[in-house]
């Protein structure tokens, strides 16, 4: 499977995404430049973290108008698997490809630490094959990661199974203290209705080697190997 990692000016998680796919997942991967207009030849896309355009104005707001985003949008509409991580989540949310908005953390402070997240559905491109309830230990590193939707939108997301990951304690239980940024309903990751676009705040691409504190991120990145080829062929 061939992954593309979209790099915007100010992206800084692109190197980790490239390493995780190459060293951790041992799949083909190449960077995609924000000024490119095509994503032909890629089976899956990763929109990595960072501070695209410095996150000035709003996180992800300027990046989403990059030339590449038209191709990314087409890819999404054709059912291609896309994973947005951290700032990539913000870009997808600004572009309307992922639901919700991301606000400043409730404690107004950047937060870098390891958290536990629970898989809520296995129906998406990046949770395929994972049992709901599976607990994954992943690092977070963000200042604007408070996922927000209105109660109506939340009900809507629940109904359509668009909540993919929630923050939890190490045993998988709900715990308000385990919610690191004040996200609505402890939501850590969501998907579009079709389930091919997944966006999350934690960093699976930094958790691909036990030497680095854990390799459970590979379960998310690797899920697309089971679902992605199918999806890619199907579109």
């Amino acid at each position: 499977m061939r992954f593309g990692v979209v790099t915007f000016p100010g992206s800084n998680g692109d190197h980790d995404a490239l390493s995780a796919i190459e060293l951790g997942l041992q799949q083909e991967v190449a960077p995609v430049w924000h000024k490119d207009r095509s994503v032909d030849g890629f089976d899956a896309l990763i929109i990595p973290g960072g501070f695209s355009y410095g996150d000035y104005l709003r996180a992800g707001a300027i990046a989403r108008f990059s030339p590449i985003m038209e191709a990314v949008t087409d890819f999404a509409q054709q059912g291609g698997p896309i994973l947005g991580i951290c700032n990539g989540f913000q870009v997808l949310a600004e572009a309307g490809l992922a639901p919700g908005v991301l606000l400043r953390n409730a404690n107004l402070s950047f937060s870098c630490r390891w958290v536990h997240t629970r898989v809520e559905t296995g129906r998406t491109a990046f949770s395929n094959g994972l049992q709901p309830g599976t607990v994954l230990r992943l690092p977070i590193a963000h200042g604007e990661g408070r996922f927000f939707v209105t109660p109506e939108e939340l009900a809507h997301l629940e109904e359509r199974q668009q909540i993919v990951f929630r923050y939890c304690d190490e045993y998988g239980n709900d715990d308000p203290l385990a919610n690191p940024n004040g996200s609505t309903d402890s939501i850590a990751g969501v998907c579009n209705e079709r389930g091919n676009v997944v966006a999350l705040m934690p960093h699976p691409e930094r958790a691909y080697d036990p030497l680095l504190g854990g390799d459970e991120g590979l379960q998310i990145l690797g899920a697309v190997l089971r679902s992605g080829v199918e999806a890619a062929v199907g579109r």
Binding site: Y53, G54, Y56, L57, A61, I62, F65, S66
Partner: peptide
Amino acid sequence: DPQGLAIRDGLHNL
């Protein structure tokens, strides 16, 4: 004003 500069460039790009 880095923020102003980035927004200006973003507007130019559009």
